[in-house]
């Protein structure tokens, strides 16, 4: 039965993705004066040069962090969307600290990274605590928490970390020695990629091979049942959200120290929402996150190339992402299939 469900989940995802891509092609046919060029750039542009392919892996790294963070929360049945704010604030605190502190040796680096991770952890933990302690909806409070992270972050950026000699609102330059090293020459693929791959392996083992991991999954599947088997619901629910925040904070840190020379985001980067799509495509399983992140990054880079080369704007892909979410999660669409095939199997067995 488990295998059958897996099969249907993969099938739904593939069908949804195919329909969405077809829809993208149809829209392009309607709006573009050079549709063939646009479609081929969208689908094959990313693999036409090493630099483009490098861009995919760079973006994929970002998506793996937020996709993993969301996956672990979804596993516990928690719709905490403050991964968005956690990623932003994590990047800001680490970028801010590392460009202003002048502590001896590696201490600056350690303090900055710890600060970034802590910031992420605090952002997602607040909705987590409120859910665990009082049963307050983590969805609404985490939506609000994103704005708290944004405005608090901008306050710090403007009043504490700001480089006044720089023309725009930004931190000081991040010293070269603290930047995450590039691991593939000729691209900007950095150490963060290896870090997040290790993290994915660790989280997968944790979720599927440890008692606490099992408890997180069981709370997500059936809270009442878990309660009767003696799982501490509040603690488990909080833990999942805390872990998500740690991963998101580390993700923001890796993004800033790997890809930028200063922190200069003045609005939320939206990577948290991308993480929701990655987690969905991955069926909330951490081990599938890399593939899902690769797919989304591929589409994004493809659409950027398409927008640069043709008359189709890159926002097409945002529309397609929305369609993918709707189709992947429309469980009743495919459950009809599933029911039919289960009936067949039962009758066949008898």
């Amino acid at each position: 039965m488990e295998k059958r469900n897996n099969f249907f989940q993969v099938a739904t995802t593939l069908i949804a993705v195919t329909i969405s891509l077809l829809l993208a092609c149809i829209i392009i046919l309607f709006v573009s004066a050079e549709p063939m060029n646009a479609i081929s750039t969208l689908l094959f542009g990313p693999i036409r040069s090493l630099r483009n392919f490098g861009n995919i892996i760079e973006l994929m790294t970002t998506f793996m962090f937020t996709g993993l963070a969301i996956s672990i929360m979804f596993q516990a049945g928690q719709f905490n969307v403050s991964v968005e704010g956690a990623f932003f604030l994590g990047g800001l605190i680490s970028g801010g600290l590392i460009s202003t502190l002048t502590l001896p040796g590696p201490i600056t680096f350690i303090v900055a990274v710890t600060g970034g991770v802590l910031a992420g952890a605090i952002v997602t933990s607040i909705p987590g605590v409120l859910k665990a302690k009082f049963g307050a909806s983590e969805l609404v409070s985490s939506l609000m928490m994103n704005y708290v992270a944004l405005y608090f972050g901008l306050f710090l950026l403007n009043n504490v970390f700001r480089d006044h000699s720089f023309g725009m609102l930004a931190t000081h330059k991040i010293p070269k020695k603290y930047k995450l090293p590039v691991i593939v020459p000729g691209t900007r693929i950095h150490l963060g990629f290896i870090l997040v791959v290790i993290l994915i392996i660790v989280v997968t083992l944790f979720l599927f091979r440890t008692k606490t991991g099992y408890q997180i999954r069981s709370v997500g599947e059936n809270t009442t049942f878990s309660k009767y088997t003696g799982v501490k619901i509040g603690k488990t629910v909080f833990l999942a959200q805390l872990l998500g925040g740690i991963i998101a904070g580390l993700g923001g840190t890796s993004e800033i120290l790997g890809m930028y020379s200063r922190f200069q985001w003045t609005s939320l980067p939206q990577y948290g929402w991308d993480g929701v799509i990655v987690a969905l495509l991955a069926g909330e399983k951490p081990q599938n996150v890399p593939l899902a992140a690769f797919f989304l990054a591929y589409l994004r880079i493809g659409s950027d190339l398409m927008a640069r080369a043709t008359d189709v704007p890159t926002e097409l892909i945002i529309i397609i992402q929305a369609v993918i979410i709707l189709l992947v999660t429309a469980s009743a669409l495919l459950s009809k299939f599933k029911q039919r095939s289960t009936v067949k199997e039962v009758i066949g067995d008898a």
Partner: peptide
């Protein structure tokens, strides 16, 4: 998730 999808759809579609 449907709500998130609607928000994404609107944000992409309007600019498009």
């Amino acid at each position: 998730l449907a709500g998130i999808a609607i928000n994404l759809l609107a944000s992409g579609l309007t600019v498009f």
